[in-house]
Design a binder for these strands. Structure first.
Lengths: 345, 345
DNA sequence: TGTTAGCACTCTCGCACAGAGAGTGCTAAT
DNA sequence: ATTAGCACTCTCTGTGCGAGAGTGCTAACA
């Protein structure tokens, strides 16, 4: 397959780069003029014709310039994947922003989504890190008036769940505190199944709370990937391929339903090893709605402990040269932060 | 101003209602046919001409049907405001959904945003309830490995802040618990200024934590309105007035920048009393980007204690008959929930 | 053999133009 | 006060034509 001569290669790269910028079909004459090539347009035409035959280019109609095919984009991406590096100044800016921000996971996520969207001019999506082995760390019971009790559950890794319980009858704060203390001693470091396997408690209140804790831990563990953060929805509306609102609508609708979105991210990255970065071009034949779009996705986190997915969606014509290194850099950054927050425990 | 005859009134209402449905200029003939009026098209034309002169209607061009002006919409809304009621079945569905959902504020918000967007086919926006007098309820300090400490701060009303502190030196969980207990006794029910006015503590750790608590409470109180929840961004893309992407983009861009959005909501509802519902038509001359849009906004919550804002943005042609009662109903519902959660303390 | 100049061909895009259709305003009759 | 009739205006749609851009092919050239 890879029988491209050097000249064809550079030509192809040039065409794609130009088309990404200009959003227009690229003609032979234009190419010569624009890049001061030492070749005539006729030669270029021959090469273009060859590239078209090989499936890297196509023409919207008989007498228009060439436009990259999905295959063309794939080649383009595979070629520039390694060499694309984020300028150090940008790296510093981003890392600075992260260190400025709070230490709250949801703040990281929002920030990362914002950075990705802004840098890539696309739509960014991130799932919060999912703790794969959810382990109990601490529970706190705070009485409010009457039978309402605020339960705060802290997991190893820093995830905090809060929930309001309604007990059968009012219980004094003292007793609640004792219960919490007992359970803290009992459950420290245990995973869901271990907790569920514990023998029944003699104290009824203990037992009730215990049941609720199991429920809560289980719910946490089940949510395949936590919350989804997204940003930059309006970025793509500026792109010429979306002047037809219908196209834009179809793509954006995916982001309306969180469940679909989650599904998309999960499917695209099942088994993807952290650090590996995937570029999905034109929906890869699977996602009909995204036929005109590309996604750059990566997993981040610590495998086996806590991982999440992040990505950028944009038109197939998006600036891979910017998006790919940005996604990679942010993924690495988040991995570090997750790592710190785990090993810090 | 209000010199409309009964016939003009019904005619105006009919025209606007029809235009909201059809999105097209309404002609005299069409009106007669469609609604089986006992009048001829010529009579209608005279009346329409009068309504046009009074500023309630206008024509896109000399020989097209009539389209409501902003003034026309205002009249329409003022007339139907009172009588618009949400069908009981819908009310039940909504209230059911709320009672099904968790007791977490962020869950309420997401749900409310989703319901509003879905019912009104517009873009919904809600600010989380802002506790106006932030009062301390409980603090919890949980040691993690090393000098990192997870501080969980609970406010009266159930708001929970979590934060990771880095102490100067490692401190055992025992000592942290004692500190927390001391502070809990000391600070219960106090507001920010009262905490700040306390005399310095003899214990250095106590003092440090105290300072951080003040900071945190202050930060909570300062965030004019908590998080912003929004939904239904893609709904409006279906509307014909947004086939020109440029228009859509301008309106949607507002929702890209949370700060702008917050500003918008705050400005539109300053001093607005809870329960009062405002309809802003065509940006009211202030919001250039929203010239083609309308907003239905309301405040909810308990004045002086905790309030928030919610609203729906849609094209000027949006279905006020559905949106207004929905916004009102959801606002009331949220007010009740906020009320319960406060008085329950 | 690879490259280039030239040329005929094709297809889109923009524009002008005409006719249909819808709606109006006005006037005169009821 | 209402209505029928009519002339007028304006948009919308489809058609046709010329300009422009780009191609593929052939023949000449290094």
């Amino acid at each position: 397959m890879n029988e491209l001569t050097d000249r064809q290669k550079t030509l192809l790269m040039l065409i794609i780069r130009d088309h990404i910028e200009s959003a227009q079909p690229i003609g032979s004459k234009r190419l010569v003029d624009h890049y001061h090539l030492k070749l005539s347009s006729a030669t270029i035409r021959n090469e273009m014709s060859a590239l078209t035959e090989m499936g890297y280019l196509c023409q919207p109609h008989t007498s228009a310039g060439r436009v990259p095919t999905e295959e063309g984009y794939r080649y383009f991406v595979s070629q520039m994947m390694d060499q694309a590096v984020l300028p150090e100044t940008v790296q510093r800016t981003i890392s600075h922003q992260f260190h400025q921000s709070g230490s709250d996971v949801s703040q990281w996520m929002t920030l990362a989504a914002s950075i990705l969207a802004h840098q890539s001019q696309g739509i960014s999506v991130i799932t919060a890190p999912h703790i794969e082995q959810m382990r109990f760390k601490h529970v706190e019971l705070i009485s409010t008036q009457g039978r309402q009790v605020l339960m705060i559950l802290v997991m190893v890794g820093g995830e905090v769940n809060q929930q309001i319980l309604t007990l059968a009858e009012p219980v004094a704060q003292d007793r609640l505190s004792q219960t919490a203390a007992r359970l803290n001693g009992l459950l420290a470091g245990l995973a869901e199944d271990a907790i569920a396997a514990l023998p029944a408690r003699s104290d009824a209140l203990d037992q009730d709370i215990l049941t609720l804790i199991v429920q809560d831990v289980r719910r946490s563990a089940k949510s395949v990937s936590g919350n989804i953060y997204t940003d930059g929805l309006t970025n793509v509306l500026a792109e010429p391929e979306f002047t037809e609102t219908e196209e834009a609508r179809r793509a954006l609708k995916i982001f309306g339903e969180p469940s679909t979105l989650k599904d998309l991210l999960v499917r695209t990255t099942t088994g993807g090893n952290v650090g590996g970065l995937q570029v999905l071009i034109g929906g890869e034949g699977v996602w009909e709605e995204l036929r005109q779009c590309s996604m750059v996705v990566a997993r981040y986190g610590v495998p086996g402990m806590a991982t999440g997915t992040l990505g950028v969606l944009g038109p197939m014509r998006m600036s891979y040269a910017k998006t790919i290194p940005t996604v990679r850099y942010v993924a690495d950054l988040l991995s570090d932060m997750v790592n710190d927050s785990i090993s810090g425990e």
